[in-house]
Design a protein around this nucleic acid. Sequence first.
DNA 1: CGGATAGAGTGAGATTTTCTATGCCTTGCA
DNA 2: TGCAAGGCATAGAAAATCTCACTCTATCCG
Lengths: 191, 191
Amino acid sequence: MTYRFPSLNGLKAFEAAARHQSFKAAAAELGVTPGAVSQQVKRLEASLGISLFRRLPQGLLLTREGGAYLPKVSRAFDLLTDATEAVAPALNGRKLSVGISERLIAHLPKGWPRHSKALDAYIRETRISEDVELIWSNDLDALLLDRQTRQANLSEHEIVAGDGAHAFFIVTRYGLANCRQTQAIIDELSR
Amino acid sequence: MTYRFPSLNGLKAFEAAARHQSFKAAAAELGVTPGAVSQQVKRLEASLGISLFRRLPQGLLLTREGGAYLPKVSRAFDLLTDATEAVAPALNGRKLSVGISERLIAHLPKGWPRHSKALDAYIRETRISEDVELIWSNDLDALLLDRQTRQANLSEHEIVAGDGAHAFFIVTRYGLANCRQTQAIIDELSR
DNA sequence: CGGATAGAGTGAGATTTTCTATGCCTTGCA
DNA sequence: TGCAAGGCATAGAAAATCTCACTCTATCCG
């Protein structure tokens, strides 16, 4: 058995663009420029031999084929996400050690994370740091940053504060990207 | 909604290595060197934060986590393959135009593809060529080669002849990689 | 025991892929 | 008409990935 399908980056770009009906919005989600998304989608269309979007001056419109493709691709991504979550390193309820960017502190809820009962169950300690190396060395489980850094081979997820005034980014190994502990932090900061 | 999972190349390497229980065999399937597979898997393990294989001198052994991950990843790849097949360009039963490498002719079944009733229904014409450009320009639907060429953004699938004496490679757009017509060619050459 | 073989790991450098930066074109709207 | 937005093209920069050459360990034989 050998599987045959086009490049994942292309599929990711397509999936995000289709969901947002916009290259620009997709680019923002993926943390790249709209041009990159445009190129990825174009390559994908070429490699499939069909066109997935109609480009209108007002924006994008999925073609019939694109519309049929989207839900299936999304479903596959769901599976990968779930599978990845399931093999997360056995934390066994261990609390996380979280690094926080100096610049971020002013924008965090007052007394964070102490004031939050919810997070008490998930965070062991916080430290001032933006050093990704501490993740690789297992000194930190997660890093809260104030801007996107696009670390290779690490999950970086945007968190938009409830008031919309700030955006945070949480960096972890993929194995921890979807676990209960990480999710709790995201939920808490999203309010 | 935004999906979070590690690089597809890493997952592909893992999936193939796990299936074969060997980096070497996986490398052959993927058309790269064993070193590349080793690096991919290592990166994947690092980015998940767990180890997927135990490396023994005799070969590989999936860890518990690796064993749990494999079937789910395979399933996701299945979905992507199916989805890709389903959006294949509407051939509507159209027959394919196939390019054949000069060097290959001697190794094809005698009188191929004429003598095969099965292929009559799927092949319109064959032409001597190894020019991938003819695929991009839609002059050809598929190309039969005698060696791997690793074309970017095209599906390249190995076909091992029934007698095991020869290997062919069929190159198409991904949209045509799994369609009935292509499958018929693969089946016919595999006997 | 000694040599040959087989599979996996490493690191440097080459190659390929992907991204950014710019500028252009079209449309919609004040 | 002037301007903002969205998408597109292309060249060059940046990053990811692969190959190559070599090492290490274990196994298989004679």
